[in-house]
Design a protein around this nucleic acid. Sequence first.
DNA 1: GATAACTCC
DNA 2: AGTTCTGGAGTTATCC
Length: 936
Amino acid sequence: MSDKNHLYLVDGSSYIFRAYHRLPPLTNPSGVPVGAVYGYTTMLWKLAKELHEADGPTHLAVILDHSSESFRNQIYDQYKANRPEPPEDLIPQFPLIRDATRAFSLPCIEMEGFEADDLIASYTEAAVREGWDVTIVSSDKDLMQLIREGDGVPQVDMLDTMKNVRLGIEAVQEKFGVGPALVGDILALMGDSVDNVPGVRGVGPKTATKLILEYGDLQKTLVGAATMKPSKLRDNLIEHAEMARLSRILVELKRDCPLPDPLDALRLDAIPPEPLKAFLDAHGFRSLSAKLDVGAAPGGPPTPPRAGEAPAAAPAVPSTPALPPMPGIDRSLYETVTTIEALDRWIEAARTAHVVAVDTETASLDSVTGDLVGVSLSTGPGKACYIPLGHGGTDMFAEKPDQIPMGDALGRLHALFADEAVLKVGHNLKYDIGVLAQHGLSIAPYDDTLVMSFALDAGKHQHGLDELAKLHLDHVCLTFKEMCGTGKSQISFAEVPLDRATEYAAEDAEVAWRLWKLLKLRLPIEGGTRIYEMVDRPLVATVETMERAGIMVNRDYLARLSGEFANDMLRMEGEIHGLAGQPFAIGSPKQLGEILFDKLGLKGGRKGKSGVWSTDQTELERLERDGVPIARLILEWRQLAKLKSTYTDALQEQINAVTGRVHTSYSLVGAQTGRLSSTDPNLQNIPIRTEVGRQIRDAFIAAPGHVLMAADYSQIELRLAAHMADVPELKEAFAQGQDIHAATAIELFGEVNRDTRGRAKTVNFSILYGISRWGLAGRLEITPDEAQALIARYFERFPGISDYITDTLEGARAKGYTETLFGRKTWFPRIKAASQHERQGSERAAINAPIQGTSADLIKRAMARMPAALADAGLSDVAMLLQVHDELVFEAPEGQAEAAGEVIRRVMMGAAEPVLKLSVPLEVEIGIGKSWGEAH
DNA sequence: GATAACTCC
DNA sequence: AGTTCTGGAGTTATCC
């Protein structure tokens, strides 16, 4: 940015409405509501602070509406006619806005007969003529007409300080589908219910954009309507053409108002602290006042920088630490180890280095029974080897390459891998630990670069070895595909020639070593050590043990269920085809949609973006309520189809031939919030909600002489929300063991019954997910206005929740990440995206992440401690088998269930301690039974 | 491979 | 004050 002048025009009037709705209802010491004023003040502070920074203001003015009357009322007497009165506690804040502006010694511009928008347009025009840049601080869509570029460089842009985004031409294009010059035409077609701009009936943003794009502009659209094919739209366009033309005049910004102050008078200079101080103190804005005391007046007299003082607003993005320069990765340096002597040399090198990276290669992706094919080691850059052990397959008579007998090699490695003095490093060590466990080897101590990367960069990118190598080492790894091919012609790693296998396997070990070096350095600098050491790293071995334990599944029972489901489905298929009048594939949403909405002509369907009718659950349930009998049948058929294909059939296939049990695979880095995920098979989505689905849980059984125990945290996320957002009413309710949704119902509706409790429950969960009024309206089947009132009431009763949301979002925007109580970071790189859709998606996720993540941290801590706690109590035969987010499943010898229950409850309830003292009790419910279903 | 449907917390 | 999908996951079937 040069010394070019840059004028900021603050749309004060629209800002305070938004601030009022977004901020909590603060009052100043004398009881005057000042929530919006506070928001306004912090915004001015922020803007003033950016004086002379790149893209910051050199000139600044606040523009206000003078009164509600303007020249537009003379054109159209209904203009802004049905705008509601401002809320009662906003009215006293209008004059305070002017006070605040004066306190900053900033010009405040308003003029009789003109709206703020017109003054903004006129100042913009004047400044651009002078060659200045202009930033309009507003989010009013009407002002987007003013955005422009010169030679591809922004001349006029908009700044939304609440969402902290700058809007340029692309934003206009994205929002309206056209450039700024045609925005007025779009607005005229759409109309505006708040300003009472009539527009054309039945035309919203979508249609308006479509019309303008098709015909070129408003005038051509209105003329072209006559030639359109007959439709409601055509009629409306013709009938309301005059209204559209009038609307076009109303939305046109007047760009040549007389300017009350000349441009030069808007220069932003050092802000005199005294009047500002007086204002801040008068209204109890203590945090800002304190900043003023330490001499940090925004845009104020330059204070000499003090040593070690970091600018407060600077995001905490440490630069990548400097590592000593390393040579590039050179695969020609790798050694294939085929003699005991060579192996001993490598083991000695590892002992000397105290750190060795390890990677195992197997014949299949199954760590429980996949055959070991080889092991690679790396002790530093350029130092890596591959020890082939199972190449050539298991056929005793086949020709095999020279390699150390597996037993001899593993005997040597056993001591190294168990050596307390040598740190073993690997990428996804859970897998290698599992493979080696088959041969009686264990690995300790260890570091896992997959888990380290997740502790540092969850949400920024994935954490695969190849991806991290590219990202951090600028190195492209050989791929598994290049070694073994894909599909039908894929070969086992045991068939790969030794020279190729060495390049691939040793490279993985070296890359893991280099990543470890880098990530290990970053962990303490970026605050990742705590979560990594206290939660995630210990869990690797624990989870591996759970996977290897597996769970017993009753195959005959599943087969029987499959048969029953198949019979029921066949019967229902007949009925459905009968009702449809023809046979069709019920499982095809496309065919089903055509049958329902085209053939049978049912009303009210919606189409997805690919143009197929939606036939999802909500849609079919709606049809069912409308009295369409086929809908219920299809829903039931689909439920059975899902249960059969995903559970009763697939689960039988998943029973391990060797162990006779089902071994899921957990990912410690699968969910950005820190939750585990489960695959092959996913045992975290076994049905429970419906009666027919619940039968599947009975297929999971205890081994003979054992029982299954299911231990659940009760309401853990709501409890954490009550603690983290500091909501006294909710904390009290939990402390007293009250029904939390009933307690909420009293606060929200004044009484508890089945209906209000259910609605309160929905609100409780929805709020934590960052739901909008429209979302809640849909859920509760009420109007958006009613939903808004409910949300407002919720925030009023539980202001802590409102503050939590505000603070969490502010933190996420400022720092780029959110944190759990244990310091787990989740990054939100899209939280400042230009697209509103992406941004709001990130905002909702950011509201939820600290709560969901803290819950995940807690149960992970309990899991990591569980094996030792059980062993200490003499219960080593009790095995932890499954985790389902807030539930742990154990298998215990029949006689030990009761004692195990006590240990389990104690460990789970105390999961936060000793680092954290929760202000709500954690409760754990434990069930016991011969099957998982029975244990619930 | 993408999409839409279902399953769970 | 304008607008639309409450967070986090995985698997299966269909269709291109």
